[in-house]
Design a protein around this nucleic acid. Sequence first.
DNA 1: TTGGACTTGTAGCGATTGCTACATTCAGCG
DNA 2: CGCTGAATGTAGCAATCGCTACAAGTCCAA
Lengths: 182, 182
Amino acid sequence: MAQTQLSRETLLPKLAAHVLEHGLGGASLRPLAKAAGTSDRMLIYHFGNKEGLITELLGYIAAMYSGALDAMLGDVRPASRQECLARILDAGSDPAMQAFLVLWWDIVAGAARGLPGYRTAAEAMMTKQLAWLEAQMPEGDPDPAGGARYLMTVIEGTLMLAAVGHDKTARDGLLAGGLLPS
Amino acid sequence: MAQTQLSRETLLPKLAAHVLEHGLGGASLRPLAKAAGTSDRMLIYHFGNKEGLITELLGYIAAMYSGALDAMLGDVRPASRQECLARILDAGSDPAMQAFLVLWWDIVAGAARGLPGYRTAAEAMMTKQLAWLEAQMPEGDPDPAGGARYLMTVIEGTLMLAAVGHDKTARDGLLAGGLLPS
DNA sequence: TTGGACTTGTAGCGATTGCTACATTCAGCG
DNA sequence: CGCTGAATGTAGCAATCGCTACAAGTCCAA
């Protein structure tokens, strides 16, 4: 046998695609293996146990996210914080981003509960997003570092409210806070 | 037999206590039943199936949350938005509130994924919190409705960042946004 | 007293869980 | 060639999953 030569690196993209569609919580070995074109037996062989698989998968997903943000960079700099925020929130309604977001709340829930790997991955993704946001701040902003953190807090709040059907609440809040043009 | 007479109403508090400690995701009938002092057999009997149980449990938890907010009300009105926000974030670090928060991210994740009952419960809890927040706005605030929505967005963002270990990021953001006294 | 509705215990079903034992195949090296 | 170690398939384990069949008990009304 041993001709297909599936390694961790070959497996992870397909595993990531599977959890992006079906979530992390209910992910079990056999469906994961099927999605990756192998068997549960081999997943254990390559990753040691399920916890190792999830940890490595979360790291891979964090790297994916990082790459996606990098690909987004290089655009025109926004002229104001308002424009910056509006553009980011627009990007969040992209269907591709939507699948990411659904998975993201799984990760947050796992991090909050202290599951191994979740916290590290979530922290890395947020750190990356913060750096990206700092680079996106408008030229001549009086406090890019602080502004980025402020926007970040507001963005995450907006995303959470949107996830539970309160997107209008968030939008009205942003308007009232002078963060979106009315 | 039939002497203990356990009904939905008797069961729900104990079930809620169990999920508050162990989470919603991994909750299965037998542990739930054991925590409630009954059997999986009776849980199905009373709630029809697991989905019905979860749905009803989420409704009960939403009502619990609502009651907790009501109990918090009646305090002194804060003098400013800053004070209001600071007081609420303080309350969030209460250990009792911490358990609620961990469960909350489970609910958000379920709502984002469209699981039955989750969205409704989450929406109700947020609506309740919004109403409470409006009542908490400082006297003479120029736009209590908008201000409450603005604060709400900021609060949820702060809580999420805290859940993944980025509480300092959020705090710095609030300072930069002029939402906390420096 | 009898009958039916409600409530509960016991036992178990088929499916799925993470994981392992064992055998086999293949590549590379001496 | 023969050996070794990595890679893989097959089969199955004990545990748990949601759920159900069946019997037995209690209770109230007729």
